[in-house]
Write a protein that binds this DNA or RNA. Structure first.
Lengths: 122, 122
DNA sequence: AACCACAGGGATAAATTTATCCGTATTGAA
DNA sequence: TTCAATACGGATAAATTTATCCCTGTGGTT
């Protein structure tokens, strides 16, 4: 594992939120699992931009943080199903609102984000 | 500036959200500005764990993304006041919910976060 | 004259996160 | 026997973000 060197901030609610949901694909994973897409392979197809490796890592963190849990079926080939814990379920209304806010303002947001790619004016 | 090498994902609302609010102190800054703490020096006192440098960088990004704007008073010593744009205001209800969720579940969250510091069992 | 408050940013190092590559294991099917 | 499907994870490189250190400039105060 990676041994952290800088202290983790956990003073306020916003600190805690950052620690558990600010990963590149965490809110996406929570969303798709909530939608019923439970198996790792399906999740990867739902998020093709992410490599399988990263999804595994972030799923593991969500699991460690107890926002998701999984059932490992004892069979061959392996079968695993993720599901949201009660804690995970409880945050979904907010994540959905975030997604809606992003969709609702997508025109604006894409515009400002695209500017980042443009080289600074001479 | 930093020239990005990997493509930015901006497919869905959740991608866009990540791009504009997933910085170490961005939601904190939005929150405090929303609370009326508008001057850079005050913001830094409100978030003592962050260095002034990082706050400047993240404020600049929030400004580029048009979630905040600022008034620069033409006087000496300098005086600057940040405020939320309409877009910035519109996301505050959700950020407040995030903070409340974190506060509400702080006991659980602190527990799982602290485990990360513990070395893996032998 | 020396210092403080104020806001800002360059240069670089360090930390952290993510990407890339590749290997493990099992069963059934071609 | 070779390959596909399934899930997982080590090792390392690259990218990105954050931390550290230090400097600029002005006007008022001591």
């Amino acid at each position: 594992m990676y041994e952290r060197k800088l202290p983790i901030q956990d003073e306020c609610g916003l600190d805690l939120i950052r620690e558990v949901v600010f990963g590149k694909w965490k809110i996406h994973l929570l969303y798709y699992i909530w939608q019923g897409i439970s198996r790792p392979g399906q999740l990867q197809k739902s998020i093709p931009e992410a490599t399988r490796r990263v999804l595994n890592i972030q799923l593991k963190q969500l699991e460690d943080d107890e926002l998701v849990a999984k059932t490992v079926y004892d069979q061959q080939p392996p079968k695993v199903e993720y599901y949201l814990t009660d804690l995970g379920k409880s945050i979904m209304p907010i994540i959905n609102e975030l997604g809606q806010w992003g969709d609702h303002n997508s025109e604006h947001l894409r515009r400002v984000i695209k500017k980042r790619l443009v080289l600074p004016e001479v």
